[in-house]
Nucleic acid binder design. Structure first.
Lengths: 131, 131
DNA sequence: ATGGGTGCAAATCCTTTGCATCTGC
DNA sequence: GCAGATGCAAAGGATTTGCACCCAT
């Protein structure tokens, strides 16, 4: 893992930070193109993976329309709309017994690294659409 | 949503139940082929979606090698290996303040339907591999 | 006979890779 | 000049769709 970011990598990172709202790789690509018009999709993907490995962005797996990225790397939870897949951060800390989680992980022989609470629901837009 | 399952749909459903271990669509396909050799991939995908819509199976989004399915539809949590993507059910109930979750969802204007705790870690195999 | 269910193949979409070129140091 | 970074195009893999056919009712 190298310690310095290339110019492109910096642009990608800043874009994820500025976009804020859990962009997909393509969304990052479209946005970063404004400052670096010649950048290629491949570079965006490569860079996002590197950033994730370095811990600079979070990779949120929730397929549908592809993985999403988040520059907010502290531990936090999410609300996900079951219908449209939109995703929001939960700011408030949800109390969980760390010790219990650790133990559950251990029981399965897994070394726990992190955890996440996901709340699934229907966002306003989707509720309207169903009506 | 129709109320009766076609013969194929039944076979797919039973396969997911019997496989037990969060199969991907292709794994279901391979397995269901033993009882219904002429079934096509498309039917498996179509059926899995229907079953998920009917609430008969759970669709677990966690891309990497595709969505996974679970006939264990009661509310439950998961442990996921960050490295290989393998996924286990957590049997024990993790205490969470339902009321808090509801409130958090409401704050974002979302109607909460369900929730899930995800513990991320490294499974034994992956820990060995890194050594 | 009629409508939903199905197989097949083609089409999509997201992501990765190979490779030749370019860049920064 | 070199090593790593990059763009482009092609490859890959998962999933979806179009469509004609088939089957159960």
């Amino acid at each position: 893992m190298q310690t310095k970011l290339s110019t492109n990598a910096q642009a990608v990172f800043e874009t994820v930070q500025h976009l804020g709202n859990h962009p997909t790789a393509s969304e990052v690509y479209e946005a970063v193109r404004q400052s670096r018009p010649r950048i290629g999709m491949a570079t965006v993907y490569r860079t996002l993976h590197q950033l994730a490995e370095m811990g600079l962005v979070l990779e949120i797996d929730h397929s549908a329309e592809g993985c999403r990225y988040d520059a907010h790397t502290g531990r936090h939870d999410h609300i996900i709309c079951k219908s449209c897949g939109k995703l929001w951060d939960l700011s408030g800390e949800i109390p969980l017994q760390q010790i219990l989680l650790q133990r559950l992980a251990q029981e399965q022989g897994i070394e726990m690294l992190s955890h996440e609470v996901r709340i699934y629901g229907l966002c306003e837009t989707c509720r309207q659409a169903t009506k």
